[in-house]
Design a protein around this nucleic acid. Structure first.
Lengths: 167, 167
DNA sequence: GTACTTTCTAAAGCAAACTTGAACTCAAGG
DNA sequence: CCTTGAGTTCAAGTTTGCTTTAGAAAGTAC
């Protein structure tokens, strides 16, 4: 009887959805975005194997770390196309994300510390506030409130605090 | 001649746009969102005063720290409606954001450290990975890959790593 | 007074990451 | 066989944060 799980042909979309905690619609969407490519039955239904649970979980994790699907897709594209994916493959991927993560944490921490300083020193009076410069820099370095203060925006927000890197 | 700046009636939208580094369209949008409410001339043109530069800069800064306009609007709503806004008002506001920021940094750092551990320990093999639990938790605690691993999701990702708090 | 620039409003468009709905097909069970 | 539930595709809707466009009115310059 082997229940619902037809292990001959892999998992159906409902099944893998339940196991990963993702909605079927989300999984189909990921497929559209090239993040995962399941097999199809003769009648066109998607069939996933157990390795895909790991793949989808990895997507969830990295996404929760703040990466865009496009980012993730790029990274996943580095996985070997046909060979079964090993633990070492996932580790290599993780390391890539970690670097990015470090940068984001550093940027955020820097901004927070600057905000700290600003609260203490009262520079919210807008005379020479590093934060204003940071905000300015975040706005793609166009004309900003820069001329109202100093001009040392360059050393702040070199890495964007969120969204994709090329903001 | 006093140039373009008609200081009798305050700044026009083009002027304040230039000074803050924001596009006029963005400023109008902020107005729609209730973040700023300029006066109007008899003919309907917006007039800003110098204090609004600070307000807009503050919006830019907090936004660059990762807060949504809705968040910012809520905070700004705490400012005194009629009385001119003091430095102490801005400081109080900043402190509010700082707490949130601390939480976000802590969450992100925690996730990064966990990722670190996962790279080292090879738990990406999906047997008892805290990160998978974290990802699971992030997906609103529904059925996830949780049963494939342990079940200590509760202590992770208590605070969301990004997006608005109630994710 | 004529030309040029700015501003106005309202509406549409964009990108990300999905969800929802419509209209159907397929597979399993009684 | 027939119903039900799950799956399929494609299109459109949602949210956030704006930009762009269109057409009109107002302000500025000579």
């Amino acid at each position: 009887m082997q229940n619902k799980a037809l292990r001959k042909a892999g998992l159906g979309i409902g099944e893998i959805a339940e196991r990963t905690g993702l909605a079927p619609s989300a999984i189909r969407f990921y497929e559209d975005q090239g993040l995962i490519t399941p097999l199809r039955t003769a009648s066109g239904q998607r069939r996933y194997d157990r390795a895909d649970i790991r793949r989808l979980s990895f997507i969830k994790i990295t996404q929760s770390l703040g990466f865009s699907l496009a980012d993730i897709a790029t990274h996943l594209a580095g996985l070997p196309p046909d060979r079964p994916i090993r633990k070492s493959d996932w580790s290599r991927l993780s390391r890539g994300f970690r670097a990015d993560l470090d940068a984001r944490i550093a940027a955020l921490t820097h901004l927070r510390d600057t905000l700290d300083g600003c609260i203490g020193c009262g520079c919210l009076s807008l005379t020479s506030c590093a934060l204003y410069n940071a905000g300015d820099k975040a706005a793609s370095c166009g004309p900003g409130p820069r001329y109202l203060m100093g001009d040392r925006a360059a050393d702040i927000a070199e890495t964007a605090p969120h969204r994709s890197a090329g903001d």
